[in-house]
Design a binder for these strands. Sequence first.
RNA 1: GCCCCCGUAGCUCAGCUGGAUAGAGCGUCGGACUUCUAAUCCGCAGGUCGCAGGUUCGAAUCCUGCCGGGGGCACCA
Length: 557
Amino acid sequence: MTPEELSATIRACIEDAIEAGALDLEPSDIGDIRVERPRQRDHGDWSTNAAMQLAKAAHVSPRDFATTLASRLSNAVGIDSAEIAGPGFINIRLAADAAGELARGIVEFGDDFGRGESLTGTTVNIEFVSANPTGPIHLGGTRWAAVGDSLARLLEFHGADVVREYYFNDHGAQIDRFAASLLAVVTGEDPPEGGYGGAYIQDIANEVMVEAIAARDRDPLELPRDAALEFFRSRGVALMFEQIKRSLHDFGVDFDVYFHEDSLHHSGAVTKAVDQLKASGALYLHDGAWWLKSTDYGDDKDRVVIKSDGTPAYIAADLAYFKDKRHRGADLCIYLLGADHHGYIARLKAAASAFGDDAETVEVKIGQLVNLVKEGQPVRMSKRAGNVVTMEDLVDVVGVDAARYALTRSSADSAIDIDLDLLASHSNANPVFYVQYAHARSAGVARNAAEYGIKREDGFQPSLLTHETEAALLGILGEFPRVVTQAVSFREQHRVARYLEDVATAYHAWYDRTRVTPQGEEPVSDVHRTRLWLNDAAGQVLRNGLRLLGVGAPERM
RNA sequence: GCCCCCGUAGCUCAGCUGGAUAGAGCGUCGGACUUCUAAUCCGCAGGUCGCAGGUUCGAAUCCUGCCGGGGGCACCA
């Protein structure tokens, strides 16, 4: 029996009581019946606070309500006992066979166990990373890559048609400085004010030169300065972008759309979008500039879209970009941004509104920053100091799985510290191995069972799953769909990771006390077969959860 | 000054949108491998949930105000 089924059973009991006149309540008054796992195991398998929530509406005390409900509940199918505790909790113990039935259900649902439908029929555009192509992806971008991809997987698991999108800021002053930095390093000049100076600049510049020679272009250094800059800009950005794409791919993150900001300017989309908004009155003219009324969405001041010199501000491209996303079919546009961009929320929502869309079409998720820590002390990353930690550095130290897990197991709301030395020396500090090991163990158990000739299809007697660790494991496995649902609706992937750690704990404890394969001369019986169902169900849940995080589920470790 | 996030065990963090005696990992200490992988399990120790009010049967969770830490407040991109 799953928590959802139990919840439905409780509802049915309440409706019965109403019909019999035992409760003065309207069926429509019954809201969500929530069941939860009591922290204290001896309180039972599940508990509900329904009596406390509904007592007021039924004009009785919580305990009286609970008495009425518990007596009906204890006679319901699949329920062993229902007892009242405290101010009106009802502690429920499932009949062993009803609880054990879940193991078969999970195995039969397989990769689909936990899947939901809450987003079926909606197209969601989720934009993340979107780092400027002026350097490799650093630690912060790596966090959003891991989190964004995991959220995308979660949304897909609930039926959404997801577009993973990377917005490539290849237009503007920072790119100009990038180009100038490349040129400077080749000519031996000093890098420009606010330019870039890492070792990668040298590498990219060398590659540009090698390409030029290989393609028998004119020596870019013989071009007029403007042409040389443009040459280094276009080739340099292309090379940088290829490098970023490769890093992301190696990290297991591939985007459906890599969108170039430059294309919005070249295609005239920016002008077109701005003209549309001017015509519709969404922009207003003030001091020679065109403004967007972002204060309507909590901004502290309105934002300039077209500067008084007639050139578009950065936000102009954002407007055109949003329009483009919607035009491509997105019902919901999610933006994953770092905490240093929280001021964008209001203007992005204002952008949606300017086009006549509901501001809810835009959802901005702000994630806190990643700090680099060395020997317990925070280290300021700076490109000048050359101590910037990149996605590749992190992966080199811990590997993709451990890196992704470390970055997704925390709430995006809290800043995280990364200590490379710590991760490198005590890699056990990363719970990913704990979870992966549980999965590998379950795979090993399944292999051994096969050798003993234990086959699931030869028998399943759920009432044989009587050990306390089996009840505990079943209870946790049954929560997976609800954990996924919450992770989806709150856009919080870390709930899945924390849940998996609980599953691993329950699995390891179960493994330690029971056996799937017979010992000595003991013959294979239904106990072994039934435990194999449970073993495989646990492996399935671990696999499904790890998949949602983009972390591998190894068969052996 | 205004806005966003955080403050829970020595450290890093959860806490299922208000429930029962606040949890996990790491670290400390002590146990468990001739039988499915000890990357594991079992136990001990460790807490004014930043502070003060409020809301109600009930608050780490919701509201208000302080304190502390991080980030942001351009006709830059």
